[in-house]
């Protein structure tokens, strides 16, 4: 605590840098994953191939990937773009499966009904398939968010500012307070991101909540009936 009290400014600065580093990969990864997930879901063969390749992608160790990035992108060694692109790759690797699963989770009868109503293919995707795959997409995005927030710390090893600095510096100088602060701050960001995503989900997927409240009401009713029977 004493360490934190005298370094509050630094921690706050690192937290801001960390957040700025994490948001683009999560958003861009999400946007890229939807069309890839759609293609994966569209054909049996493409699903197997795409999911396998992306699964392998996620197994690449992060440090080598961060170091490798400037060679591919032609960016300076210390550019935060290296970390952003690498984190986006991981986000896509994780998210495509959720996107494919989410799209395939939509009830085929409902899609048939939508077509019978006169939705064109394009309208049906945007107004029916995508919203209905929302719950699965959200679940996937929460995993991506947590993964990205934690992976971003490694960026500090190659000199891109993030909360990882506190781990490295704290270890080198044997300041446990600094390491613990780094861990707690990272966790805090992950939790806040998660809460924000859940909140967005509540706003965008209101029918899910209605579902749950009605389920709760049904349960309460069942309990009351059971009590009445006694």
């Amino acid at each position: 605590m004493k360490w934190l009290a005298s370094n509050y400014g630094l921690v706050w600065e690192l937290m801001q840098a960390h957040i700025a580093l994490c948001i683009p990969p999560i958003l861009i990864g999400f946007l890229i994953s939807i069309p890839i997930g759609w293609v994966a879901n569209r054909y049996k063969l493409s699903r197997g191939v795409i999911l396998l390749v992306l699964g392998l992608l996620y197994t690449i160790p992060s440090l080598p990937l961060f170091i490798f990035m400037p060679l591919v992108l032609g960016t300076p060694q210390l550019s935060s773009l290296n970390v952003v692109v690498a984190l986006t790759i991981y986000a896509v690797a994780l998210m495509v499966r959720s996107a494919a699963d989410g799209l395939s989770s939509v009830d085929k009868d409902i899609l048939q009904a939508a077509s019978a109503m006169g939705y064109s293919g394009w309208q049906r995707f945007w107004r029916v398939e995508l919203p209905l795959s929302g719950p699965v997409l959200l679940a996937g995005l929460r995993v991506v968010s947590a993964s990205t927030v934690s992976l971003a710390t490694i960026g500090s090893v190659i000199g891109v500012t993030s909360l990882g600095y506190l781990f490295i510096n704290g270890l080198q100088r044997s300041i446990p307070g600094e390491v613990i602060t780094g861990i707690v701050a990272t966790l805090l960001i992950a939790v806040v991101f998660d809460l924000v995503l859940v909140l967005i989900g509540r706003l965008l997927l209101p029918w899910i909540r209605q579902d749950r409240t009605s389920a709760r009401a049904a349960r309460r009713r069942a309990v009351l009936i059971a009590e009445g029977a006694r």
């Binding site: 409902i110 009904a113 939508a114 077509s115 019978a116 109503m117 064109s120 209905l132």
Partner: peptide, 21 residues
């Protein structure tokens, strides 16, 4: 087809209602 379907009513088993609407 899309235009045709919009001028023909369709009612199916299990209602086929859109659960998010």
């Amino acid at each position: 087809p899309v235009k045709l379907r919009r001028r023909i009513g369709y009612v199916m088993q299990n209602s086929g209602l859109l659960p998010h609407r």
